[in-house]
């Protein structure tokens, strides 16, 4: 029973990471209907920067905040420079561009920081009082940080005029423009936020999976699985989906298939959801007028 509880709780901890990535994906999907395949690589690259700053002697949390700032700018810049011209392009072009981005950022991480696996320090000391047999200190910290970020994002969208404007753009860009919202900048802002949330997920997950240019592939897949499970056009569904997928993954890893097939489980979940209920648990079923 204790082992089971432990698996559940640490699944909740990884679920927080997946929920963050799923949220980042959904934020971009809602506004432009683009699936950002480069989300994981953006997060990895930001994490490398955090690593570099910590290596240079910056205190952890300062490096963390600077990384978030950088990730925000990176995300917004990618939207403005690379993605903008493809706003209304056919799906094939858009996906190809995202794969191109994935390759470029991945190789940039590899070229700048080499392909050797690096350990990444956790800001939460392993003997801290909040660690226990059920959850390691880092996992507790991870849950805490992801929950804080999710709460901040929620507050931003719910209580600030800017958040309202962004929601309006997601809902109806044409009308938003008519009432004076700068649609282009809102899209860039959405990308910036997605980059920022991804960077949080990257820095929190790096101590667990170790830092290497491909570290986010698996996480990204689970993020996709979470987003699809909750419904890819529903932010809160996606967050919940991320947590569910995290717990499912841990339980499956512990009791069913073992840790070797982690990514394959994600594949199974993704294909399963797409076949059985493509709109996810909370998503809208899209009806197209012929």
């Amino acid at each position: 029973m204790q082992a089971f509880l432990h698996q559940m709780l640490s699944g909740f901890a990884t679920g927080g990471i997946y929920a963050s990535i799923a949220l980042a994906l959904v934020m971009i999907y809602q506004t432009t209907h683009h699936v950002n395949f480069a989300q994981g690589e953006m997060a990895t690259f930001s994490t490398y920067l955090a690593w570099q700053m910590i290596e240079l002697g910056l205190p952890y949390w300062l490096a963390f905040l600077l990384t978030l700032l950088f990730a925000f700018i990176l995300g917004a810049a990618i939207e403005r420079i690379i993605v903008r011209p493809f706003y209304k392009a056919p799906v094939l072009s858009v996906v190809a561009v995202f794969i191109g981005l994935l390759l470029i950022i991945n190789s940039l991480s590899g070229a700048l920081f080499t392909y050797t696996i690096k350990p990444f320090a956790s800001p939460f000391p392993s003997d801290a009082w909040y660690g226990s047999a059920y959850l390691s200190a880092h996992e507790v910290g991870m849950i805490f940080v992801t929950l804080v970020v999710l709460a901040l994002v929620f507050a931003f969208f719910r209580y600030t005029p800017l958040g309202l404007a962004m929601r309006a753009v997601a809902e109806n860009p044409v009308s938003s423009r008519l009432v004076g919202v700068r649609v282009g900048w809102m899209l860039a802002l959405g990308w910036g936020l997605a980059g920022l949330i991804g960077a949080v997920a990257g820095t929190m997950t790096a101590p667990v999976v170790y830092l290497d240019p491909n570290m986010m592939f698996g996480v990204l897949l689970y993020g996709f699985a979470g987003a699809l499970l909750g419904g890819i056009d529903n932010a809160w569904g996606a967050v919940l989906g991320g947590f569910i997928v995290g717990i499912l993954q841990n339980l499956a890893g512990a009791y069913v298939v073992g840790t070797e097939l982690m990514v394959t489980v994600a594949l199974g979940i993704i294909v399963g959801i797409l076949v059985i209920k493509p709109s996810g648990l909370f998503g809208r079923t899209i009806v197209t007028r012929v």
Partner: peptide, 21 residues
Amino acid sequence: RLEGHYLALATFALAIATPQL
């Protein structure tokens, strides 16, 4: 049943899972 992005996603997952399988 999948179109566009969804099919891209499912096959993306397949590509990543292959070496592991």
